[in-house]
Design a binder for these strands. Sequence first.
DNA 1: CCACTAGTGCGACAATAATTGCGTTAATAT
DNA 2: ATATTAACGCAATTATTGTCGCACTAGTGG
Lengths: 216, 216
Amino acid sequence: MATPPRSTAFPAEQPQPARRPGGRSARIRAQVLDAVRAQLVEHGYDELTVDAVAARAGVHRTTVYRRWREVGGLLADVLDAAADDDWQPPDTGSLAGDLTAMNREVHTALTTGPPLTTALIAASFRSAEAADALGRFWEDRYGRCEAVVSRATRRGEIPEHTDARRLLIAATAPLFHQLLLLRTAPDLPLAEQTARDAASAAAVGTYAGPPTSSPG
Amino acid sequence: MATPPRSTAFPAEQPQPARRPGGRSARIRAQVLDAVRAQLVEHGYDELTVDAVAARAGVHRTTVYRRWREVGGLLADVLDAAADDDWQPPDTGSLAGDLTAMNREVHTALTTGPPLTTALIAASFRSAEAADALGRFWEDRYGRCEAVVSRATRRGEIPEHTDARRLLIAATAPLFHQLLLLRTAPDLPLAEQTARDAASAAAVGTYAGPPTSSPG
DNA sequence: CCACTAGTGCGACAATAATTGCGTTAATAT
DNA sequence: ATATTAACGCAATTATTGTCGCACTAGTGG
């Protein structure tokens, strides 16, 4: 499982027809993905059609259809490309500070500027390919964020065997929930509050230890 | 603000041309909404096209386009129709029990049977009308669930001025997050765990009192 | 019962989205 | 260099989606 294939844009190779990822293919892929991002930024998800992307990339429609099949495939590829950046979770010196900073980032990403994240999520509901890519993306991000929890453990802010993933999700999920599902007005203080709630709950051992058995 | 108009299917009336919600219109609306639900159950959101719904309802395409405009409008109407049921939150005798039961319901709705809820959420990303309807729906549901918190307060399980909405969201959001955004495998124990985590956090006063000021 | 008209059915039409066949370009191997 | 062929560009074609005008049906009020 070392270095999985970067992109799912190329369908599973059965007869293995000797790929050719040399100059042109890679160049066109970059052009198209750039066009997707630009189109998303300027016109939103609704106007993210194959035609518009192709025109913007200076590439023929047919090429896009053949390589990515549909809009969902395009976004999936964008997501996979975004997975190999150098993002690192904040390191403020305290658990509450780190989680708060994280939620501020999320809040910004979801409310200001181009709705890129929102568009990717929207696409994930319509394209299995995009959904898988989004799953991989989250997995990657939450994986990196576990460093926040281990640092807090080292500092003695929270119990030894705190479940990192459980804590991280408790801290961030309410924010996503409010902004994406409940569609309440963006509220930065609330985002910070959520983070602090999770931090203080973790401090008293809420997310520590193995799952206890169900009561009823 | 007593008894808002049941449906948003009819656009805001300016010249007020004397509505006629008598026999036929109501009958057709019922046929179409039934068709939407049935189509959703059998073929999912992808195949929920205006054409398919119209054909299934035994109604002409034009009629659907004229009354609901787009698929989002159809789903918005379905949502509004669902808002006036008699659903009540569970009452098991304990906060943890109630929240756990709630999450079990959510888990069932999101993983088994027709992806109706998922489809509605998917639609909310593409149609402002559906998004608004979904917002109203959640507001209604979380409003009803506040009874769970007030009962727990009366029983002395949690502090007096616990923020009901904050607690409820902390209990349910992680489940939605995992199933809809992270796309992890359905996991009922995890759903129950989440509820217990929120309950125990609330018991030690995590969600009590006014929001504390931000640290950094 | 009759007059009025909101709402529906129908078919033709326009716009957009997606597919296909074929010639051309350019990445690879020799 | 040269041969091979993956990947692309292009134009024509088909499928899908949404709109419009007109005739007709059936609630509604008198």
